[in-house]
Amino acid sequence: MADGKALKIIIAGEGGQGVQSIGELLAEAAFQAGKQALYIPNFGVEQRGGVSVAYVQISDEEIGAPKFLKADLLTVLSKRSAERTKGYLKPGTIYLYEQSALEAPVIDDRAVGIQGYETVAPEAFAKMVGDKAGKPATPPAAPALRPIGIRAAQTAKAELTPRVFNIIVLGAITKLIKVLPPAGVKEAIAKKFRAKFRENPELEELNFQAFAKGLTMIEAEGMQ
């Protein structure tokens, strides 16, 4: 961002993992922080049961095209999505990946039809992160790539609830990109899920804890 160029972020995973929510929350928080922000989901006919990719740009200046060729931060949450998005890597890309095995999830998305992705949080994606800790996803070997593995799924399941998996990832991203105040991202979470939280105050606490875990996960692993 120092050179005025947009920070380019991709979050990729399986439909139902809450990928689009992460993108939307990042962009919303950036907007609230007074930055230029642009978020666009992919929304092909394959959306349901397919790979879901969110594109986010954050900048201090006007943003150009909504999609881009190379990412500054690429987050991958499943093997298939890692395969699909490897073209976005460049030297220096931060490669944030989920270490636990990720089975193709049972889709429980709030997809509207198969072509309309309203980018609403898939609240119930509990079922989708596999129980079994299988083969870790291996980050591609590229020069000067900065791979950072996290175990968000495991943490969510063991310490909170599997449903807040994506909020842990959001925390990790927030920490890595450094341009958004964590308090602002928390506000975006509170705003987006206001109705849900009112219904179930426990959920709010779980989400905030998940976000905090994501932030500290990066610190704890000394990956700053």
Partner: peptide
């Protein structure tokens, strides 16, 4: 276009 339809910005 579809991008303008679906993208979010200010």
């Amino acid at each position: 276009d579809g991008y303008q339809a679906k993208l979010r910005e200010a």
